[in-house]
Design a protein around this nucleic acid. Structure first.
Lengths: 239, 239
DNA sequence: GCGGAACGGTGGCTCAGCCACTGGTCCGCA
DNA sequence: TGCGGACCAGTGGCTGAGCCACCGTTCCGC
């Protein structure tokens, strides 16, 4: 049993999730003012202090903006929000996953190409090690996490720290739902074999090949993930 | 003088900024526990409640992680953090700007290419309008904001909402320092002229041209921005 | 020797209250 | 009648004290 599987949902966490959901579902329209804090807190059955903690997080996430003496306004977050909204959007509506994967594919290819021209010797060694770790993973879950590490190292090998942060953002986006997406890693050895051409091309400094291999790898992985997801959804629908 | 005339920096805002700075400057090493909340609050001269608001934001930003009964640990945010850290990193150290621009160039080209194949008729019209708005901007500041709108619409024209969020993230990263980067927009008409080939190629559905034009536009703009920044830094150093 | 109870320390959350900011109203003066 | 300033009601900002829940350790009794 891993640490992350059991999340202690604190009151603030729950409240935040609920507020977010109410906003995403359109109960509070973008552009309008939320009810006063005292009223809202009473409505959700919590203290104003607790409500403020939750609102404060939503504000930092860019979903609402608060002004002293005025109130709290729901922002048009799809217009001005950043990629850090993705985790909550993805767990709310799986339509986002398709779009996330597409972008991941494009950017992943970019990263692989660039890593192939910039990687250091040390990073080559590390990539080889991490690929080994994928193959040696005891189960799908561990393989999935090991796979993420390989991609993090690829991003690091671009020599541009922003690529690493971007990769993290995209991974974070499907971390909350990753359990449903571990199909490609059921057989860790095969997963490692699919990933191998990418790592090899980067180590051998073949940018074009690296780009193509990454594109291919990401496309295959995506297909397996979404295939499993569809199947699950169908089973769910039948039931 | 009471408060900063323009900025409404609340206590929580200031406290958050200060904590962040202390972490970024290495006063609290990643991996270690922060002092207990009661102690930390006393140290900063605020209530525990207020401190918690600030910590709660930092936690959501991925810079610290709090566990009940244990304490608050400083996370290795460069390893696991997302792109939403960029605004604070960029305003802390201008070295980030160079890397942000590079990624912006790569992804901007990607977006232009894709927009050229996917844009709708409505989006074409809107792009043309927004380009007009850049040319008609009264000053550099307005031109810069109008320019951002064009890029947002380009991202929207990819048909993939994740690209819009990503674009927002990258823009947000240099929004805090954008005043120092308005050099390319001193002459709004010229700025619009530089941007014109990109918009035109997208409207005409010429993906390859759009990609190249975007690459070129972003490279030029970047050069102007960083050139102005260097000059400012030199002047600053001399003084 | 070992298992469970107790303890000290930590964060989670509540409560009641006062302060500060905003926008509108209303009154007094010209 | 027009207008400017004082006032007021409503809103978020912040406080301080307090209690609860959780964790790791220690210590005691079996």
């Amino acid at each position: 049993m891993t640490v992350e599987s059991i999340q202690h949902q604190s009151v603030v966490d729950l409240l935040e999730a609920r507020l977010r959901e109410d906003i995403l579902r359109g109960r509070h329209t973008p552009g309008t003012l939320l009810p006063p804090e005292r009223e809202l807190a009473a409505g959700y059955g919590v203290t104003r202090t607790t409500l403020k903690h939750a609102l404060s997080r939503l504000e930092q996430a860019g979903m609402v903006s608060t002004r002293h003496g005025i109130g709290t306004r729901v922002r048009d977050f799809l217009r001005v929000g950043g990629a850090d909204l993705l985790p909550m959007l993805a767990s709310q509506d799986s339509g986002w996953l398709v779009e996330i994967f597409e972008v991941r594919r494009h950017i992943g290819s970019l990263i692989a190409r660039r890593a192939a021209t910039r990687r250091t010797a040390r990073q080559s060694r590390r990539l080889a090690e991490l690929l080994e770790a994928v193959a040696a993973a005891p189960d799908a879950d561990a393989a999935q996490l090991a796979d993420v590490e390989v991609h993090r190292e690829l991003a690091r090998a671009t020599g541009n720290r922003v690529y690493l942060l971007l990769t993290n953002t995209l991974f974070n986006a499907y971390m909350p739902v990753r359990r449903a997406l571990c199909a490609p890693f059921e057989d860790p050895a095969k997963a490692a074999a699919r990933l191998d051409p990418v790592v090899r091309a980067v180590i051998d400094r073949r940018p074009q090949d690296a780009e193509r291999a990454a594109e291919r790898y990401l496309r295959e992985t995506e297909k397996l993930m979404l295939g499993a997801l569809d199947k699950a959804n169908q089973a769910h629908a039948i039931r």
